[in-house]
Design a protein around this nucleic acid. Structure first.
Lengths: 224, 224
DNA sequence: TAGATTGTTAATCGATTAACAATC
DNA sequence: TAGATTGTTAATCGATTAACAATC
């Protein structure tokens, strides 16, 4: 009885690395679609992304059977299927919290809208910012978070507040009923496990890059 | 003779997952430092980050011996050591390429500066933008990239151009002598292997979050 | 039919966790 | 000394790659 935990009705949850790749597949498929391709093989899908064909098939197998042996995959069908898998076959209303530099930037970022993510509320705790209009969005007070989240059925939040208030702000969002947070603050958040959390720490990304470059350099020097 | 490839002089390159965590350790250490802590154990370092103590020690072991059995790690020493490991014990001059919404945002983002990354050039291919001042930075023409990169010894670039020009722009940067690119464009880049590349695709991050939330919901429904 | 390509099982590889002797 | 905690080796776990029978 110990093992069979989640094998019942609930879909076996895909290894998290898989989802990252599925998003890439979707991009690539959409590109093929624009180019008018009707059918593709796992190799044609993976290669431009530097992913092996076997990996592509294995990843897709997590969610069902989408292809036909000897034939490949129908581009438009697979796009639809993957959109459903990720959960972006419908719109997601978003709240953006914290209208600093980064928050302002994200308001203007087109990449979200194009994929069904729609910012329907912009919140800030600073009274000086409340009432302003930024990129056509009205900044509303953080104190109204409870009513706003409920009324507009907001499930996801972009958290762009300074690190020192990130934790309490996140807790407020959770209390208001939000289900997931994209955290741009450079600090780890501790939230209930049922809340979705993805960290986007630009400083960390840049440090990763610095390390890679440094390595490449030292290898250059030591190499024959 | 087949195996001993990189065991010689060149440091055995750390598993890439390790570097991501090392950046987190550094954050945590800096926080302890601000709090006045002098010494910490691997458990005290890992726990706030939800990382096991054994993992912390294993990660650090990739780069040398930093602790003392029975005692732990000296906070300030470890900070210095890790900064050196990542390669941020000195400043990195940065070029920001593409002054769209996201580019503007990143110009105002304080997180970079605080960690030794300093934007010393802002480039754009659009003549209408060249000559503008954004956040005190003068926008210079993309065509001057060769002289600018050389003169200001720029090693890293933040690529914030639209997806359709990302690849040619990246190639131009490489030709100009850049060693690493932080790619914000939602498209995979194909560059020579010696060029460092880190992708930051906000759309993909948000899709990851959507998937998590969707899963949590369906589990809620199916659970007893 | 012959050639292509899937879904899936088995083999390999790498990363995480546990355990413990060595050491302060 | 006794208690704490490291660095490291062995055991476990998960993810990637290779191989191939099944199928169009």
């Amino acid at each position: 009885m110990n093992k069979a935990k989640s094998d019942s009705l609930a879909a076996k949850l895909a290894p998290k690395a898989v989802i990252g790749r599925v998003c890439l597949y979707l991009r690539q498929l959409e590109q093929y679609h624009r180019q008018g391709e009707k059918r593709i093989s796992s190799e044609e899908l993976g290669t431009p992304l530097s992913i092996k064909d076997a990996q592509v098939r294995k990843d897709l197998a997590c969610f069902g059977q989408f292809g036909h042996p000897g034939v490949g995959y129908q581009v438009d069908d697979l796009i639809q299927a993957l959109r459903h898998v990720i959960g972006i076959d419908h719109d997601w209303p978003l709240a953006l919290v914290g209208v600093g530099n980064l928050g302002r930037a994200l308001l203007g970022y087109r990449g979200f809208r194009a994929r069904g993510f729609k910012i329907v509320a912009v919140l800030d705790a600073d009274p000086a910012k409340v009432g302003l209009r930024v990129q056509k969005h009205l900044v509303e007070p953080m104190d109204s978070v409870f009513e706003i989240v409920a009324e507009r059925k907001i499930a996801l939040a972009l958290l762009c507040v300074p690190a020192d208030v990130a934790q309490p702000t996140a807790e407020k969002l959770v209390a208001a009923g939000i289900s997931g947070i994209l955290n741009f603050a450079p600090t780890p958040l501790h939230l209930p496990p049922e809340i979705g959390l993805v960290d986007v720490d630009l400083g960390v990304q840049l440090e990763n890059l610095a390390y890679k470059v440094q390595q490449a350099r030292s290898n250059q020097t030591t190499a024959t």
